[in-house]
Amino acid sequence: MTFKPDPQIFASSIKEVSFGPEGAAVTFGGAGVLPLYSFDAPIAHRPLVGIEISDKGVDRDLPELAAFYDGANTLAEIAARACTAPGADFLSLKLESADPNGDNIPSDEAAALAKEASDASALPLVIQGVDNVDKDAELLPKVAEALQGKNALLLSAKEENYKGIAVAAVTAYGQKIGAESAVDINLAKQLNVLISQMGIQHGNYVMHLGNAAAGYGFEYLSSTIERVKLAALSQNDDALQPPVITPVAGDAWSVKESVVSEEDFPEWGPRERRGIEMEISTAAACLAAGSDAVILRHPSSVETIAKLIAELV
């Protein structure tokens, strides 16, 4: 008896979202099969990989990273250099200086930084806020205004601040937004419904279902993404069909494994390698669960994950 394949092809599909300026935009979403199951049916758009930079500069304690950004000192130079990383589909700027628990620079200044990076970037742009609902509510509309015409993707709008961010970014300035909820399928759905009630149509927002690094409660994230994809495809749940973006870098580079020094843990080896492997492992697992885009910090991780995607899809 021969093997009878039983492909799972769904009548519904993930919504497509494009961002980036006209002529240079990238598109993700669109799949009508489970994540990476290109053997069941062709997948419209492969998952995307973004390279993350911070407005606070580059961690030059990491030798490989320092070498990659050698000579790039201003934000514009760093942004331009990041865009040359092999495999990077988009640039993601984290506006760290605006964090109220940190430097807390005014939103106008942060928006100007976003503009500076954007003007220097050859790739479509994602802007990551500061993960503080009040500051993001003020900051992201300013960024949206500063980046008119760039069709940038702004992360993120949460339940506490989605109204202002959604209306300003999408309706007033034609940008895209990420709807962020805390690793829970129902919260994600609820936020999407609320956003759609503001008159924001599919194609203008993506989902950000939370973060976790491998080993740190990652099962909650992966199971949530898997359940969201299953509901979107098999239940045709319209409110769970936007593509999923997962910023991996932040968590991957802040867990103990990527933070402690080689002096303290000599058997663990160089810190940079640990951070890269943590990024790679987490990103690959996110893609397996169903993320349609991941954001990584190290050019070496970006290259590996881009290659993995190219091999699979």
Binding site: A213, A214, G215, W268, G269, E277, S281, T282, A285
Partner: peptide, 13 residues
């Protein structure tokens, strides 16, 4: 170790 740390952590999760 750099590979083991995330992989075993992921598997445990």
């Amino acid at each position: 170790y750099a590979q083991a740390l995330p992989l075993f952590g992921l598997r445990q999760n």
